[in-house]
Nucleic acid binder design. Structure first.
Length: 289
DNA sequence: AACTTAATCAACCGCTCGAGG
DNA sequence: GCCTCGAGCGGTTGATTAAGT
């Protein structure tokens, strides 16, 4: 008995999914629906664990799964919700229609934590959260504003969440028809959609100026955790790496946010949304160069 | 061109939780 | 109350690709 179980386990396939496997899973689920993943895997003729099938379906094959880079707005939502809930990836994912917890987790680990390492700040620390809220999130808001204004100029019906390089699942029926579809009313009602700007600082839509809504820079200067801590810090390595960063957090009048280098290319008009809509925090350090 | 390093992301693993017997 | 099983979650790994030297 134990041997047959072991044999069964040994026969299970691992690693990347093949097209045939994907097709088997899609066909089975379209006929019988999701759930009971272990028996589903067997019934579908897949030599995979139920877990593996579930993951593959949820993260890649499910029709409303979005692929591709996160928009600035989506990134903003992630930062905002992560500051509230921490590593509750699935909870955060519920507020980003079409995005999976895995995708969000990967984004956080590869992009956001990278910047924390860069600054030598613990990504779970208050300092880092403050850096995000005071500095990077307003920058993202700015991009969201730019995106929405440029998209409204080109087409009034295209929502910000759906613009850019987002791709539908390759198996989605509409995938070949359009890359920039509007989210359906049903989809929107399924998720409590977070408007990032509402929870951080409301953009001034009447004037179209986001900069007026940025954090109070004089206050930022006064209570600059970064400035003070970096100067009082005897750790030479930390100062060496962080001095410019910290000073700039602390002396905003010397380096207003609006002066930050956005990108080498005009990310709105270049048409290369696949590259430039992606929030690249490295841009934030480029003013030093 | 060849090699190394870094970045990305799909997939796996172990754990917890809740439902049902 | 205990056990089993399915489902889901968060952390981690490893293969692939891109960038740098």
């Amino acid at each position: 008995m134990a041997n047959s179980c072991k044999e069964e386990f040994d026969q299970l396939k691992r690693g990347p999914w093949t097209l045939e496997e994907d097709n088997l899973l899609i066909r089975y689920i379209s006929c019988h629906g999701e759930g009971r993943w272990n028996s589903l895997a067997k019934a579908a003729g897949l030599k995979r664990t139920g877990k593996s099938c579930r993951l593959r379906w949820l993260n890649y094959l499910k029709p409303d799964t979005k692929r591709g880079n996160l928009t600035p707005q989506e990134q903003l939502v992630i930062l905002e919700l992560h500051s509230k809930w921490g590593n509750r990836w699935s909870k955060i994912a519920q507020h980003l229609p079409g995005r999976t917890d895995n995708e969000i987790k990967n984004y956080w680990r590869t992009r956001v934590q990278k910047q924390a390492r860069h600054l030598k700040i613990d990504s779970n620390s208050k300092r880092f959260v403050e850096a995000l809220q005071r500095f990077w999130m307003p920058r993202l808001l700015e991009k969201v504003e730019q995106t929405s204004s440029s998209s409204s100029a080109s087409t009034a019906s295209t929502s910000t969440m759906e613009t850019g390089q987002n791709k539908l699942s390759p198996y989605h029926p509409q995938a070949k028809q359009t890359l920039f579809s509007e989210s359906s009313p049903a989809q929107q009602s399924e998720h409590e959609f977070i408007n990032p700007s509402s929870s951080i600082c409301a953009p001034d839509h009447s004037s179209g100026k986001i900069l007026s809504q940025l954090p109070d820079m004089s206050q930022l200067y006064e209570d600059s955790v970064f400035y003070n801590s970096s100067l009082q810090n005897n750790d030479c390595y930390n100062v060496e790496i962080s001095e410019f960063d910290m000073l700039d957090f602390g002396q905003p009048e010397r380096m207003p946010v609006s002066n930050f280098h956005v990108a080498d290319t005009d990310w709105i008009s270049s048409g290369d949304m696949a590259v430039d809509t992606y929030w690249n925090m490295d841009e934030l350090w480029q003013f030093r160069k």
